[in-house]
Write a protein that binds this DNA or RNA. Structure first.
Lengths: 147, 147
DNA sequence: TCTTACATTGTAATCGTTATAATTAGTGTA
DNA sequence: TACACTAATTATAACGATTACAATGTAAGA
C-alpha cells in the first residue's frame, strides 16, 4: 500500500514537470517506507551504499522539491536538524522528550480553534500544527529501572 | 503588571541559586516587555547600547538558564533561528507566513487531545504545542495592493 | 581580605543548510 | 539515433546560528 503512495507521489511529481531521477526515486521511497521521520543526514547515510556518489546537496535539493510539491512536510523541533515526514492524511505527532521518538496519531481537525484564531487575530488561516510532548513507554521503563 | 512578572521571575531565579547579574536582568526584562518573540540576535542587538561589552554567548547562556528555570520557552519554526517567549499562562501562536509576525491568542487547553494521544500511543503526556499559520491583515492588504 | 564558585567575554569551532560552478544526464525534436 | 536544450547532480565553498573553551572578572561567605 505504500507502493501505491509512492506511485501516486511519482505521478504528482511528473505532472508538475519534475524529472524522476534514480536519486529522487530512492529518497522518496525511503521517506515513505520509513516510520522514523528521518533527518536529511539520515536519508543521506541510508542511501550511501546504493548511491556512493550522491551529494548531501542532492538530498536537500530534493527535499525542497518534494516540499514544494506538497509531498513532504518539514518538522522543526528543538533539536538542531529538521525532520521530514511524508504527507498522508492529517495526523499529529507525539514526541518523546527523552529519546526523540515521534509517533503519529490521528485526531479530527481542530477547525474550531482555527476559526477562533482567525476571528481574534484577523489573520486568514491556512493550516495549523500541533505536537504533544511526553515520555514514551520505553523511556518510562528505562527510568524505572535506573532507580 | 509586567513589573510583577519580572519581579516574580527574578525571585524564581534567586530561589534556585542563580545570581542576578545586570545582563540577566536586562535580558529577562527585554523578553518580558517585548511582544515580538525575539531571536537571540535581536535581544543581543537591543541591549548593545546598554551593554556595549556584552557577548552573544551571554545571551545564549542566559536563555538556556531561563529555559531550565521554566521562565522562557524556545520556539523553533522553519526559519533558521529560534525565538524566545516568556512563559505566562497558556496561549497559542498565530504566525504569518508572509512576514513572520507572531500574535498570541488564548484558547482553553486541549486536554481532550492530550488524553486521546496518551491513550493511543502509550506515552505519558507532558504538554503540547499548537501553532496556526496564515496571513496577517497587513500582508493581506499588501498583496491586494500588489495586484 | 582571601577564597571559591559562578558569570561574562572573546574567539574559535561545529554543524546544518544553502549557494555556486562545473559536469552529467533526461527529454523532445529532427 | 543524434542533437540540443534544460534540468539535475556533484563537489566544494560559504554562511549563519549556536556552542565550546579558556581567560578574565565579579559576587558572596569564611
Amino acid at each position: 500500500m505504500s507502493e501505491v503512495q509512492l506511485k501516486d507521489a511519482l505521478d504528482t511529481l511528473k505532472s508538475t514537470g519534475v524529472r524522476i531521477t534514480p536519486q529522487r526515486h530512492a529518497i522518496l521511497e525511503y521517506i515513505i517506507h520509513s516510520t522514523s521521520h528521518p533527518t536529511a543526514d539520515e536519508i543521506y547515510r541510508a542511501l550511501e551504499k546504493a548511491f556512493p556518489n550522491m551529494s548531501v546537496a542532492t538530498v536537500y535539493n530534493n527535499l525542497r522539491v518534494f516540499k514544494k510539491a506538497g509531498l513532504v512536510k518539514e518538522l522543526t523541533y528543538g533539536d538542531s536538524s529538521s525532520r521530514f515526514d511524508f504527507v498522508t492524511h492529517d495526523h499529529y505527532h507525539m514526541i518523546c522528550n527523552d529519546c526523540g521518538k515521534i509517533v503519529d496519531f490521528h485526531y479530527p481537525g481542530l477547525d474550531e480553534v482555527e476559526h477562533l484564531a482567525s476571528h481574534v487575530t484577523g489573520f486568514q488561516v491556512d493550516y495549523h500544527r500541533l505536537e504533544i510532548y511526553g515520555t514514551c513507554r520505553d523511556c518510562i521503563g528505562d527510568s524505572a529501572k535506573a532507580q
